[in-house]
């Protein structure tokens, strides 16, 4: 998945997140959550799985339970708490919000894994080149400054000027080192700008180079995305997927949008699984 053109990927991510975040239909949200879980399982390291489950499952219940405690809308009271009704609708709505929120969080996590800074910069570079250059420079500065901070603090320690006797001393020592680093970074930025000027930055007609291409694969994926998305959006516009929780939970009607969006949110999983199977097949042949 990560080798597709960043524009296609970005479009896809935005579409999934926006639809699952802003439509209130449980079928759409559950399929987004499922897609998110499967996608996450593929892109994150297997060593992180336990930690992720430990984080997201309790999170799910916390979100799900808070809603009925605070919201007392709904027509079907289950029981009373401190004189306030706790309704079935609020319970279900809480669950739906949890599905949506966890789904969006998982998709954002996948986004962070897939849309690395260079892809992000590519998208920005095409639309706002100057801004993207500033971003790229800042991204280069961050590790450089971190390293310098470490160097300075070690040098100061070896002079006995970095004290860790008390908390205030510690903070003061940190602050001194940080200030020295700020000063160093500002001075060094001038050399960076000279190097840019020496290589002709500021001439008219600057172009933007990127390693990414828009190939046939990208076109196919984009076409699939557009078709599935089109069916989904059509379903939303026509109201087929309209769904209410209050005052009473409405019933679901069948819509082609569900099938389309189901496939849509499972796309990364399908692509990855297909490649994994192919890979195995080739390996077995060798």
């Amino acid at each position: 998945m990560k080798n597709y053109n960043p524009f296609v990927l970005m479009f896809y991510f935005l579409a999934v997140v926006i639809i699952s975040a802003f439509s209130e239909n449980p079928v759409l949200q559950i399929s987004a959550l499922l897609g998110g879980i499967l996608f996450c399982a593929i892109v994150t390291k297997s060593s992180e799985t336990a930690g992720n489950i430990g984080f997201y499952v309790p999170m799910f219940f916390i979100i799900a339970v808070t809603n009925p405690l605070f919201s007392h809308n709904g027509a079907t009271p289950l029981f009373f708490l401190n004189g306030n009704p706790v309704t079935l609708e609020a319970f279900v709505y809480g669950g739906a919000i949890a599905v949506m929120a966890i789904g969006v969080m998982l998709w954002c996590k996948c986004y962070s894994e897939i849309m690395t800074t260079d892809k992000f910069l590519y998208i920005f570079g095409k639309t706002v080149p100057k801004l993207s250059l500033v971003l790229s420079m800042a991204l280069k500065f961050i590790p450089m400054y971190k390293q310098q901070t470490r160097r300075v603090s070690r040098a100061q320690k070896a002079m006995g000027l970095y004290s860790s006797k008390s908390v205030t001393d510690k903070i003061r020592s940190h602050a001194r080192v940080f200030m020295a680093m700020v000063s160093w970074s500002l001075e060094n930025s001038i050399e960076t700008s000279s190097s840019m000027k020496a290589r002709g930055y500021g001439l008219k007609g600057r172009t933007n180079f990127a390693l990414f291409k828009f190939g046939a694969d990208d076109l196919i994926l984009l076409a699939v995305i557009v078709i599935l998305l089109g069916v989904t959006v059509f379903g939303i516009i026509t109201g087929e997927t309209r769904f209410y929780y209050y005052p009473r939970i409405s019933t679901l009607k069948f819509s082609a949008a569900y099938i389309a969006f189901g496939f849509f949110s499972l796309l990364p999983f399908i692509i990855e699984a297909k490649e994994a199977i192919k890979w195995r097949y080739y390996v077995s042949k060798i």
């Binding site: 260079d118 250059l133 790229s136 840019m196 002709g200 001439l203 600057r206 172009t207």
Partner: peptide, 16 residues
């Protein structure tokens, strides 16, 4: 060095 990636650094002058 201006940019965060090696390939981008190589391309920087030509882009300009």
């Amino acid at each position: 060095t201006v940019t965060d990636k090696v390939w981008h650094e190589l391309a920087f002058g030509l882009e300009n």
